[in-house]
Amino acid sequence: MSAERPAPLAPRDLIVAAIVNLVWGLNIIAVKMSVEAVPPLAAGGLRLLVVLLVCISWLRVVPGRMRLLVTLGLLNGALFLIFVNLSLRVSDNVSALAIAGQLGVPFSLILGVVFLKERIALPRLIGIAMSFGGVVLLVFDPAVVGEVAGLLLTTLGTLAFAIGSLLQRRLAGVPVLTLYAWIGLIGAAVLFAMSAVMEPGAIARLPDLRLGDFGWILFSALGSTMMGQVGMAWLLQRHPIATVMPLTLGSPVIAVLASSLAFGTVLTPLMIVGGMITMTGVAIITLRSARPARPVP
């Protein structure tokens, strides 16, 4: 008896996928603009406070899962935004950071192999090598050589997020909005506390923030964090991962091109080559990871 075939993608599924790619791709611009207007730790705290306020009705104690939820909040809330916001504050070549930001995909695969004993075949090994190789190539570009600190911080941010994503697998069954309520609460508390110590006066100045600058933070909170994640969860509830994962491959391309246009970054030949190598590696990993396992005879 043949297995039930998954439902085909409907027009609204494609619209949701397009929105997810768009908000994730444009988010790097919003974060860069927000950390130029507000010190990076305070900007991250304000972003997560918005997430908390949106999800607060879903904030609840989950018996037996609180240690994991707290750790997830520290990783995907506080630590991730510390690295990402600082990287964008100290860097001018945002397009290069957009490329390095794709390392979360190979990091997630490596962590799955190490901690979950997942099997990995040659194509995905090649994808990992290409993903990291493309980013390493950027360091040799004269237009990027001054952004090594930013690239390193972005890489650490993607690693923190990948570890958090690994934890989310152990939180299966916990509603997505409950996860983000805890991420918002814990992340905002940590970032505001750090800002009070390391960015004197930053929190006190937040009420004077211009509406346009607050709009960038609002876009990151509601667009990237909420619309992007909820949209992905909605798609994964309707379709198998083999169908959904390849739909997200447009976001890094949008991020690189949009940041180049927004900030006037010249895409040098070496950046284009490094970006293509990295994104090809990410595509290989994504497509191979999305393939359903062969049925056991």
Results as ranks from 00 to 15, higher is better:
G281M: 10
I28K: 01
V114D: 10
Q237E: 15
G275F: 01
V266N: 09
A293Q: 11
L68N: 07
R170G: 02
A196Y: 09
P142M: 06
R89M: 10
G264C: 10
L14N: 02
V38F: 08
L167H: 00
T278Q: 02
A293V: 14
R119N: 06
N76Y: 00
A37N: 05
L247A: 08
T286A: 14
L41D: 05
R291P: 06
R238Y: 03
R288K: 12
L209P: 07
L79C: 02
S224W: 15
V114N: 11
A193F: 06
R238I: 07
F263A: 07
A30E: 10
V273P: 02
L270M: 13
R60P: 03
T155E: 13
G201E: 06
V135Q: 04
F80L: 12
A258I: 02
R65A: 15
W58T: 02
S260A: 13
L103G: 14
M226T: 12
N93A: 07
I285M: 15
V148F: 09
A290Y: 00
A42F: 04
G173C: 09
A37I: 06
Q168A: 07
I28V: 13
V135A: 03
L247V: 05
D213Y: 04
R210T: 09
P63M: 13
L88Y: 11
G275E: 05
T243V: 14
V266K: 08
R294D: 08
F107A: 03
L236Y: 05
G212S: 15
V282I: 14
A37F: 06
A43N: 13
